[in-house]
C-alpha cells in the first residue's frame, strides 16, 4: 500500500534513499493524491534522491509557496474588508499555519480561506464581504437555508476577481453535532500572527484540527489533516512544558476530548508524534483502541496509482460523517432531499 509508504517517508525521511523506481512512482502518486507532495518535498530535503525525483519535488514546493502567498493575500484582503466593522480577522487551518510561520505550514497546500468571526457579527460580516467583491458560489435555496440554520459556516463565497473561496465560520462544528465547542472562548484566546491577522491559540488549533478531521468529516484528506495535528503537537510540545495537559484541559472545556485523544493516538502511531502520557492529574495513555484500527485502515486506503481503495470502508466513514453531523430523523430528511436533487455519494 502506497499510503503506508507515504507515512513512512514523512515519519522517517531517510528511508526514501532505499526506494526503487516502482516504489517512488507509488510514493509520488499517493503523496499527490493526499495533497502531501510538497510536505514530502520539505521532509526529504537534503536526502540522496534519484535525479528524476528532484524536479518533481521542486515543482511541488514552488506550487505550495505560491499557494501560501495567495492565501496570505486573501487573508489580508478579508482583514481589510472587515476592518471597518471592528471585527478582527481570525484565520483557521492552512492560512493560519502560513501566517504564524508554523512547521505545519511548510509545503501545505491551502485551498479556501477559512475565517472565524463572532456569530453576533455575522449579519454585518456578510454584506461587508459582498461589498468587497465576494459572491455566493451556488444559488440553491435548500442548501442556503440548510447552511444558515444548521451549519457552523455560511455557504461558501468566491471572490469575483481573484477566484478564491472564503468560508466564514462562527464556530468549528455544525450546530447539529453533539459536542458544543465554545466559540466565544476560541475567539477570546486567539493570538496575533502578523499585522492584521489572528489565529487560534496553540491548543485550540489542535482541537480544531482534530474536530475537523474526526468529529465532522469523512476522513477524505485525513493523512494531511493528521500531519497538521502531528506538526502542531510536536511544535506545541517543544514550546510549552505540559502542552498535552493544557490540551486535554482545553479539549474537555470544548467537549472534544474523544476527538483530540483519538487524533493523538493516530498521530502517535502513524507519524510518531512525541505525545506525553500522564498518570496524574489525569490518566492519559496512547495505546491504540480496537476502533483506531478502522481509522488507520481508512487513512491508508490509497494505492500506488493514487486510487482510493477499500471502497466499503470509505463509504462507511462517509455514512459516519453524516451520522456525526446530525440526529437520525434530520439525517433521513436531509439525505432524501439531496437524493431527489440528484446528489450521489462519490
Amino acid at each position: 500500500m502506497s499510503a503506508a509508504l507515504l507515512v513512512r517517508a514523512l515519519r522517517q525521511p531517510a528511508t526514501v534513499e532505499h526506494l526503487d523506481a516502482a516504489q517512488w512512482n507509488g510514493l509520488i502518486a499517493a503523496a499527490k493524491a493526499e495533497r502531501l507532495i510538497a510536505t514530502l518535498a520539505w521532509r526529504v530535503d537534503g536526502m540522496r534522491l534519484p535525479e528524476p525525483v528532484q524536479p518533481i519535488l521542486r515543482d511541488a514546493r514552488m506550487d505550495a509557496a505560491r499557494e501560501a502567498r495567495q492565501a496570505l493575500w486573501e487573508a489580508d484582503r478579508a482583514a481589510a474588508a472587515l476592518a471597518p466593522l471592528g471585527v478582527r480577522l481570525v484565520v483557521l487551518k492552512g492560512t493560519a499555519y502560513a501566517a504564524a510561520g508554523l512547521v505545519a505550514g511548510q509545503g501545505r497546500f491551502i485551498g479556501d480561506l477559512d475565517i472565524l468571526v463572532p456569530r453576533s457579527a455575522m449579519s454585518q460580516v456578510e454584506p461587508a464581504l459582498m461589498a468587497a467583491g465576494w459572491e455566493w458560489v451556488k444559488e440553491d435555496a435548500y442548501d442556503d437555508a440548510y447552511y444558515r440554520q444548521w451549519m457552523h459556516e455560511l455557504p461558501p463565497m468566491i471572490h469575483v476577481e481573484r477566484d478564491r473561496m472564503i468560508d466564514v465560520h462562527h464556530t468549528i462544528l455544525p450546530l447539529t453535532a453533539r459536542p458544543k465547542p465554545d466559540a466565544d472562548a476560541l475567539l477570546a484566546d486567539a493570538v496575533p500572527a502578523g499585522e492584521n491577522v489572528w489565529t487560534l491559540s496553540p491548543e485550540d488549533r489542535v482541537i480544531h484540527a482534530a474536530a475537523h478531521m474526526l468529529a465532522d468529516g469523512d476522513l477524505q484528506g485525513g493523512l494531511r489533516n493528521l500531519w497538521d495535528i502531528h506538526c502542531l503537537c510536536s511544535e506545541g510540545g517543544r514550546a510549552v512544558p505540559d502542552f498535552y495537559l493544557f490540551l486535554f484541559e482545553r479539549a474537555a472545556f470544548h467537549q472534544l476530548v474523544p476527538a483530540v485523544w483519538r487524533a493523538l493516538r493516530l498521530a502517535h502511531d502513524l507519524y510518531g508524534t512525541p505525545v506525553v502520557a500522564y498518570r496524574a492529574p489525569i490518566t492519559v495513555d496512547y495505546r491504540l483502541r480496537a476502533s483506531d484500527r478502522m481509522f488507520i485502515a481508512r487513512l491508508l486506503a490509497r494505492d500506488g496509482w493514487g486510487r482510493e481503495t477499500r471502497k466499503l470502508l470509505v463509504f462507511a466513514f462517509y455514512l459516519r460523517s453524516h451520522w456525526l453531523r446530525m440526529p437520525p430523523l434530520m439525517l433521513a430528511r436531509h439525505l432524501w432531499t439531496k437524493w431527489r436533487k440528484g446528489h450521489r455519494p462519490r
Binding site: 523506481a21 512512482n25 502518486a29 528524476p52 525525483v53 518533481i56 496509482w305
Partner: peptide
C-alpha cells in the same frame, strides 16, 4: 518502462 515518471495518468 522502469522510469520514475513526472505524471501518473489513469484510464479507469
Amino acid at each position: 518502462h522502469d522510469a520514475i515518471a513526472d505524471f501518473t495518468v489513469r484510464l479507469q
